[in-house]
Nucleic acid binder design. Structure first.
Lengths: 257, 257
DNA sequence: GCGGCAGATTTGTCATATTATATGCTGATT
DNA sequence: AATCAGCATATAATATGACAAATCTGCCGC
């Protein structure tokens, strides 16, 4: 009988993840998946390299082969692993990883501020969010606009309280993408949300460097409410410029890798 | 002992999927995952609805509980399912689905031409591919440009041979995104590639409606080779306009849903 | 040199038992 | 009547052991 499972890896319920939508860690196999996933994203196990065989690895992790196999299936579903009889289970080449998966992206940020990953993320956001805002301005329903306004007001009320302002900020961006009516953009939104949450998770523990640009958010809101696509687009561009500066400052202050 | 596993669902090795990168169907649990995944995306099992319990469902599918559970883990990893003791396994709300996952998107197209899904896809492509081309024009290495040229030439040679021209076309777009150096864009590319492959899979079986726009591709190639970001961007915009017309024609001809 | 065959290794699948967890009910308590 | 603790129950979660299937390796015969 096993005494300690997953030795040295307790779940800290106090961890802030700001409600990010990631694979559940309630279950044992979920914990194993996260653990191995983080190792892969950190580069501890390089692409092409094989995991120990199931018998050895399950013993090493103090879990049954069943739990380990289910964890492996989760990671394989995200493109990280590939199993074959006799050959074993190996890490797939990086271009097979589904970086758009919220978990994968969260694991990429798990170690702390990551300048290269932040840059990728900003590039994507700068490509998408202005166009998305323009679409939202054209298509948002009254109730969606009302929800957006509520999220903005929550940000105003939250002020400097990071634990309240960050979720409101994330909510705002998610609602914006939802207003486009395009499900792919919505999924892209939760992916980005998770990545930002993973980033903020570290940031809120350290010195405060993140300042949410309220005026820019208000400009976006009002443009969408007015149905002005062009104004919404330019407002989001300004918002992202502001955010980029803020995050760069923060990353520079916290052992930027 | 079981005679026929997964009754009525044989794997057709002759199916054309144009090398799309999806979860392996070699294994039994992989087949089960695809089968249930398609059912969910088709709407046979609505969000909020529960699957039969593991004992019943595994018996119904003629597989062991183990295989079924591993399939469920794959689907849960993609955000489609959620399992809890006592409650059972239920389909999550649609906004939790990771539509950016190649498998999920492929299942969305599995039934045949899907006008709504095609529209989503085009919207996304029109947002990011022009920007990606501009980035590629700035950053592509000599060898990447050379690869792009090879892919284009393969398209030229292929001509009307769909089985050769479509893979070359997909390769071209993938290489373009790879040239941006942004891993998120690359993943986005394989997602789109899979979706297009799923679409083409049907199309190549029916009457020919897809015509690859060679001149537009050549314009993109030359702009990138010349390092002209603006030209690359406009060339891609024209390319997508052409593609949109072509697909719309095709969808209209084949029981457009 | 080469093709194929035998053996060994590893994942894949199965069956079964036990445990953990969530849910709803029941009945006591206020 | 409402609330809450505890109990029963259904279900997934985990563990274990056995066997099957795949596939790589190297040897053997030619």
């Amino acid at each position: 009988m096993r005494e300690t499972r997953l030795a040295g890896r307790q779940i800290h319920k106090t961890d802030k993840n700001f409600g990010a939508r990631t694979y559940s860690t309630r279950s044992l196999h979920g914990q194993v998946a996260h653990q191995i996933g983080e190792r892969i994203l950190r580069g501890d196990i390089a692409p092409g390299q094989s995991l120990p065989n199931e018998a050895d690895l399950s013993e090493e992790l103090n879990v049954s082969r069943t739990a380990l196999r289910e964890a492996i299936k989760v990671l394989a579903a995200k493109g990280l692993l590939e199993s074959r009889p006799k050959t074993g289970t190996r890490v797939r080449s990086r271009d097979n990883w589904n970086m758009l998966d919220p978990d994968v992206l969260a694991w990429l940020f798990a170690d702390g501020p990551n300048a290269a990953a932040s840059e990728m993320l900003f590039e994507i956001r700068e490509i998408f969010e202005p166009s998305a805002a323009a679409m939202a301005a054209t298509r948002a329903s009254k109730s969606q606009i009302s929800d957006l306004r509520s999220a903005y007001e929550a940000m105003e009320v939250a002020g400097d309280d990071i634990d309240a302002s960050i979720p409101a900020d994330l909510k705002f961006h998610q609602l914006l993408l939802a207003s486009t009516g395009n499900e792919l953009l919505i999924s892209l939104g939760s992916m980005i949300e998770t990545a930002l949450a993973a980033n903020f998770k570290v940031s809120s523990a350290g010195p405060r460097g993140i300042v949410i640009a309220l005026p820019q958010h208000k400009a976006v809101l009002e443009a969408i409410a007015a149905g002005d696509a062009v104004a919404a687009q330019t407002a989001v561009i300004e918002l992202l410029q502001q955010a980029r500066i803020s995050v760069a400052t923060f990353n520079a202050a916290n052992n930027n890798t």
